[in-house]
Amino acid sequence: MSVLSQLKEPMYGYSLVKKLQDSGIPIEANTLYPLMRRLESQGLLISEWDTGESKPRKYYRITENGIDVYEKIKKHWFDFSDSINNLLGG
């Protein structure tokens, strides 16, 4: 869900690692890269190599199907966290 939320605009893997880490979500590159490939194989992300810059990089962005799934799990997350907050008296 964190990954899907950040990929409305195309990003390459390492920039996403940094962005998530800066947002307080520590994730290792060796976990994120295979995860993005798996999300791509499930049709939630799409990738494209950009060879125009000095370093060739693979950019990922969310698909239409990915947006649908993201909206559903986001709603589920909010509902679930509300329930937990109520339970904990927050």
Partner: peptide, 17 residues
């Protein structure tokens, strides 16, 4: 079929790191 792609991807990652 994914060997080259993964290899290029990790190489770019190592370069960034």
């Amino acid at each position: 079929k994914i060997q080259n792609d993964v290899s290029n991807e990790i190489e770019a990652l190592i370069d960034d790191m």
